[in-house]
Design a protein around this nucleic acid. Sequence first.
DNA 1: TTGTACGCGTTATCAC
DNA 2: GTGATAACGCGTACAA
Lengths: 332, 332
Amino acid sequence: MTTLKELAKRLNISISTVSKALNDSHEISDITKKRVNNLAEELNYKPNRIAQQLKNNKTKTIGVILPTVINPFFAEVLHGIEITATNFNYDIIVCLSNESLEKEKRSIELLSNGSVDGFIIAVARESQVNGVSKHIKEAIDRKIPVLMFDRVMHDITCNKVVVDDFKSVYTATDFLINEDKRSNILLVSNIEELSVGKLRTLGYEKAIQENELTSNILKLDNVENIDETIYNYLKANKSIDAILSLDHITGIVAINMAKKLGLKIPEDLSVIGFGYEHTNLLSSPKISIIHQKAHQIGEMSVKLLLQQLNTDNYGLETTIVPSELKLGRSTK
Amino acid sequence: MTTLKELAKRLNISISTVSKALNDSHEISDITKKRVNNLAEELNYKPNRIAQQLKNNKTKTIGVILPTVINPFFAEVLHGIEITATNFNYDIIVCLSNESLEKEKRSIELLSNGSVDGFIIAVARESQVNGVSKHIKEAIDRKIPVLMFDRVMHDITCNKVVVDDFKSVYTATDFLINEDKRSNILLVSNIEELSVGKLRTLGYEKAIQENELTSNILKLDNVENIDETIYNYLKANKSIDAILSLDHITGIVAINMAKKLGLKIPEDLSVIGFGYEHTNLLSSPKISIIHQKAHQIGEMSVKLLLQQLNTDNYGLETTIVPSELKLGRSTK
DNA sequence: TTGTACGCGTTATCAC
DNA sequence: GTGATAACGCGTACAA
């Protein structure tokens, strides 16, 4: 790695002159600047960023803690984060908690030693279910700004970016009842334990109650054979005329299982699921989805965090990114 | 941030004594160690990693450059990389090229200033199609070890981790011919332009030729309506009795379209696609896949890179991670 | 057993 | 217009 020192030695001038020349300081003569720049170019000099970080006490790096990246929602959020961070000349260090509290804790602790200027976090399932937030509070106590998205914790005071979980599911349920004229709507969920799952379920229940129907929930958390379970349920409950899935998988599985049972979609059964970009390719008929603007969530998260970093105000806002009901062919 | 200096001041001892005490040096008395450790604990002291990096001229960080993370293959590789890197106490800085050469180039250049100890790269589609590799050579010239996986470039000398693209597709084709007794096998591909796509196609063609059949390729690169295209093709070519998909999407689409045409799977049509963990949930019948060990590719990549980092030998090896034909219910 | 001095690479302040 | 010096935080060879 070429350093200022080396350039200085080769040119027989001082380190500080080289530094100033490279930074185009007005105190340096044009001729010296030229000499310096030429050699720097030749030796492919690049200022050592670690040294700059030490000097400035800023890393221009964001720590991103995600439960997983295999779930396309988080993958797309990460995509949004990366693009936006890059635009603002920030790097991201990514840690995957793998839904484990222990791993999440360790990652945050490790990066809290000056490695990052701030965190963007979606907490692990385990952390959320058990309500453990101490490790996140510690980062905030160390004056490292934290932004939480999607899976947030209410006892933490920080900027948050969430989806309108309650409202979007309420709207979708209402759509099934009043537009699609369905009356026996099954809610299928494998994220019942999570805050987002609970909120979504509440949205469903509110719409059901307002329309004086009965709610019907099939919980699939930790279930092995999702497909068989849905198949058997549909077989045993022929009166079901709509399915609302709270995730990006079970809706598609439901369509396949319904077809296997000879049901026509959407004539006999309407299906709405959750989805993101590119999700709709995978079912026939194309599934109607509650489209979460995952990319936008990532983008927004970075912008809010950087804003906090550059103004060092306290983060207190919760931003809601609205979802959109995107009709495919699995509803009438 | 608590520093050594602050601890030293509070305890009225020198900085180096504090440093040694914290590192459990034998030169320091137990009593001093105790005092130091207690205060460090109390003030939640953690050594500033940036300073350590500057001192050691090592970042313990790997730069990971991926085309995207929305494709589940790369998502799962990233997962493998993250877990393995963490195990070895390395962080990862992730950059997404978004399939753009320009972005890839910029990311590599930016991180080549001392930010990372090495790179793990899967090149962008654009870089590969145009055969542009200068930016990667530059990193290697700067003595930053590079490991390429999956999408590799043959004019670059470095450690590589690849899938057995040729062989796995050859095997799958042969299976369709000799086990499933199919004779009219359609190859469906939307990655024809990529090195992996080309290799896979060659595997298909070899098996076809060996069995004296005729090859049949439906190229879907940059096609908008994949589903309609496949539907129309199947409709116009009723003699097709098997489909081999080179990616993780079109196989599932093919199953759905075939069912729509009234074809029975696997009786009328066998289907094999590519897939990773959790892929098989999404079709009915469950799709038979060439299972790429994406997680293992990530794991292997990290291990090989770290080995190179710690022994500073030249990277010259190409490691092949074998895939596995995982039969579902879409083949006989 | 403890402390002093130096260096990692950069930048900023001050002196010449 | 140029150069010397200090500082960011850490670790360590050497001196006391």
